[in-house]
Design a protein around this nucleic acid. Structure first.
Length: 462
RNA sequence: GGCGCGGUGGCAGAGUGGUUAUGCAGCGGACUGCAACUCCGUGUACGCCGGUUCGAUUCCGACCCGCGCCUCCA
């Protein structure tokens, strides 16, 4: 039985999908006005792992992750760039797909865009108005009336009176209550807009997710996820809109990932201390970044630092060492092992990837022991288990030689290195160890490490 | 101020009412010409103070400290 921590109930719950064997999941994706940063990477990777694991456990997962391709920030950025907003969003969507592919994130089943669902959005707003949950403000805007929904605040545990007392709530003349939020924004002169019964305009931020998730997955679905800062107001508002519009419970399980921190501060756009995925991938390999993200629990806060990334690199390197020079047995011929069961136990417990990785290291240790004893078949079988479990986390899927020998950052070609290894082997044969060590040191200086074994010498990036 | 989360060995990071997390780093040994890789061994970790209990890092309460949301942000 899989247990998932539900933000709504603040506890782990047994996961029971609405339809047996099928999981409907919606995750709030990107607002595409800039490149993805590490926080996006965490959401992307976390829910990729959730999807992979649920499928591994036999569920048919319908994974929908939206793209917000119209909003204030997009229009402002496009304006700054002097480009059409669609040029900007198309470019950023392409970049996002490149980034996620590098991180080993599988594509969601559907990737709805806000601009593709204007009719559904307008229809939902219309429903809310006729139900008395929303109103035209007279300036062309339409707002959701927060006090029309008794359960408002149930996700974020906020009381309406506290929100109203807070000075930080945007006070706008047109709103009946400061906590009300826009469903439809009237277009300013020259802005891109869509026609609606309330005049030309564009959707508010929250309504698009209500409309798209309902359209793609139905009134009620199993899992809704997103970043930690979406909990309020975004997800709270989605609940209000959807439950008022459909009259049904919106989502059963709410999942939120933990924040990424940099130097003990939350990484955020407003603080300007964020790293884009592209920047990070210039310094670290994508699989190392993924391993770093997966090696702590998705709900915990993680600190981005060079030390932590380098440690992740060494730890992942250990796993690949276990797979190096070995041809794993055919997966189908390797029955479920105790390690599979330990892995499942960890992952069943709210996707405990840290515990799952500990199992991977136990398997690696087992492989190394078998190899040491020359027990080839057991080693190959264990290697198959390691690759099999790694695939659920989206790691250990590349050829170990690729992991060790790609992107070395040296000017040396593989042929150069092989030639030097041969020269060193000759020197060793002649017992000229000074020369042999000189060659090894020279390679080490250029970032190439040699590993000797009975079968010969192999090399890897430092 | 309101709401919520967390404090685990040198570092990262799981977990548990009594028994090994795991990784990185360190130390000792094996392997090696020497290294690297690997294997074996090695650390009286659980913020502080009370309480419950035969026994608490794990449950309860207070306290201290850190963090997040309450505003665009994943």
């Amino acid at each position: 039985m899989i247990r998932i921590y539900n933000t709504l109930s603040h506890q782990k719950e047994d996961f029971q999908p609405i339809e047996p064997g099928k999981v409907r999941m919606y995750v709030c994706g990107m607002t595409v006005y800039d490149y993805c940063h590490l926080g996006h990477a965490r959401v992307l990777v976390a829910f990729d792992v959730v999807t992979r694991y649920l499928r591994h456990r036999g569920y048919d997962v319908q994974y929908v992750r939206n793209i917000t391709d119209i909003d204030d920030k997009i229009l402002r950025r496009a304006d700054e760039n002097g480009e059409d907003y669609r040029g900007l969003t198309e470019r950023m969507i392409r970049a996002m797909h490149e980034d996620e592919a590098k991180l080993g994130v599988m594509s969601p089943n559907e990737e709805p865009r806000a601009t593709g669902y204007i009719d559904e959005i307008v229809a939902m707003i219309h429903k809310l108005i006729s139900g008395g949950h929303a109103y035209e403000a007279g300036n062309g805007d339409v707002y959701f009336a927060v006090d029309s929904f008794d359960d408002y605040g149930k996700l974020s545990r906020k009381k309406l009176e506290d929100l109203l007392a807070g000075a930080r709530v945007d006070v706008q003349e047109a709103k009946r209550s400061p906590a009300d939020f826009a469903l439809w924004k009237a277009a300013k002169a020259g802005e891109v807009s869509w026609p609606s019964p309330w005049g030309d305009g564009r959707p508010g931020w929250h309504i698009e997710c209500s409309a798209m998730s309902t359209e793609c997955l139905g009134d009620t679905f199993d899992i809704h996820g997103g970043g930690p800062d979406l909990l309020f107001p975004h997800h709270e508002n989605e609940i209000a809109q959807s439950e008022c519009a459909t009259g049904h419970r919106f989502v059963n399980t709410w999942m939120h990932v933990g924040a990424i921190r940099v130097n003990k501060e939350k990484m955020s756009k407003s603080l300007g201390n964020f790293f884009t995925i592209r920047e990070i991938l210039e310094k670290y390999r994508a699989e190392v970044v993924r391993y770093f993200l997966v090696s702590s629990h998705y709900r915990s806060q993680v600190d981005y630092s060079e030390d932590n990334l380098e440690e992740a690199d060494r730890s992942l390197t250990r796993l690949y060492h276990a797979l190096r020079g070995i041809v794993p047995a055919k997966e189908s011929e390797v029955p479920e092992t105790g390690h599979d069961r330990e892995f499942t136990a960890a992952m069943d417990d709210d996707f405990n990837t840290a515990g799952a990785i500990a199992v991977l290291h136990a398997v690696a240790n087992e492989i190394n022991q078998f190899r040491r004893l020359g027990e080839e078949m057991p080693a190959k079988q264990a290697a198959a288990v390691l690759v099999r479990l790694g695939s659920v986390l989206g790691i250990l899927q590349q050829d170990p030689e690729m992991f060790f020998q790609s992107d070395t950052g040296t000017e040396l070609t593989a042929e150069d290195i092989e030639a030097m290894i041969q020269a060193r082997a000759d020197a060793r044969k002649a017992k000229n160890f000074a020369e042999a060590d000189r060659i090894r040191d020279e390679l080490a200086e250029k970032g190439i490490i040699l590993d000797d074994s009975r079968e010969g010498t192999s090399w890897r990036r430092g």
